[in-house]
Amino acid sequence: MTYNNDNLTRRLEAVRDRLRRAEKRFGREEAAVALVAVSKTRPAEAIRACAEAGQQLFGESYLQEATDKVTALFGLNLQWHFIGPIQSNKTRPIAENFQWVHSVDRLKIARRLSEQRPEGIPPLNICLQVNVSGEVSKSGAGLDELPNLAHEVTALPNLRLRGLMCIPAPADDFEKQREPFRKLREAKTALQRDGLDLDTLSMGMSHDLEAAVAEGATMVRIGTAIFGPRNYR
């Protein structure tokens, strides 16, 4: 796909405006919600155009493609977020190249990320992916197993547990969109009451951004609304 940089930056600005309007509508502080531009399957040139328009946070899911882009765009002061499923044999390059991982759903993966995080760089910021909808086909820790997992991850030396992430089943009704996000917010609140220092809710995509902001999102992950329809592999 060929990208028109002017169109790309216009769409990026439209998403930023949409996010600010949602913050105002739901009583959130201005700029309380960070925008992660989901750039998986998108070329480095599109990311560079967004970076030139002031976007710094980018989300990737395909590891080899992502590390190629990290290398190609080195020096742009970008913050890389891994948001896809994690296989055990892929943890080292994730630990070496990313600043955030949103999709940790089991202790084995967290331990490997901690062990393989290079010395001399800050701890890796972690969100635990939670299966708030209880879908068998979806990744994520169950709400019942979340407290034990969170406490175990918090104890790992080279990670910093920041919060929770979810990818709920799509819904068209606004109130139905809010329900899983509400569950994630309540899970975060329960963990905070249990002594964990969490500050992040990674939730909301192009179709349900407003519902996520209404329920307390601190990061939204937006791809299609910025880059256009995705060409899946």
Rank of each mutant, 00 (worst) to 15 (best):
S137H: 08
I109Y: 01
S61W: 12
I47C: 10
D105A: 04
L57C: 14
D68M: 15
L146I: 05
R111A: 02
Q56I: 15
L124M: 09
Q64V: 12
A95F: 02
G54H: 05
I47E: 05
R48C: 11
E45T: 09
A44I: 05
Y62R: 14
I109E: 00
V130E: 00
F98C: 10
A44M: 07
L156R: 01
P123R: 06
V130R: 00
E65A: 06
E60N: 08
L156Y: 02
N125P: 09
A110V: 09
F98E: 02
T71E: 14
I109Q: 00
L113R: 01
Y62W: 15
E115L: 13
F58C: 09
K108N: 04
A46C: 07
Q55Y: 06
A46Q: 03
L73N: 05
I47R: 08
L143P: 00
L156P: 02
G120A: 07
P123A: 08
L78E: 10
P147D: 07
H102L: 08
E135W: 06
A141V: 00
L146K: 01
A49C: 04
I121Y: 15
E119Y: 13
A49W: 00
A95V: 06
D144A: 09
Q56R: 15
Y62D: 12
P157R: 01
P122H: 15
N77W: 15
A141M: 00
L76F: 12
D68V: 12
H102D: 09
V101C: 03
K138L: 02
V153M: 00
Q129A: 03
S61R: 09
K108C: 01
V136K: 08
D144Y: 09
N125Q: 15
A46K: 01
L149M: 10
P122M: 12
F58S: 07
C127N: 06
S114I: 02
L156A: 03
I121P: 12
N97P: 09
Q116M: 13
A51L: 13
T154H: 12
I83Y: 05
N97I: 09
G140P: 01
V136Y: 05
F82W: 15
L63Y: 11
P85I: 09
G59Y: 06
A110R: 03
A49V: 02
A155K: 08
E45D: 14
N97A: 11
F98Y: 09
I86F: 01
I47H: 06
R112Q: 14
A150I: 06
I47G: 07
I94P: 04
R117H: 11
I94E: 02
G134Q: 02
Y62M: 14
A110P: 08
W80M: 14
W80N: 11
A51C: 13
L143K: 00
N77R: 15
K108H: 04
L76Y: 14
G120E: 07
L146F: 05
Q55G: 10
L113I: 03
V130M: 01
T71R: 14
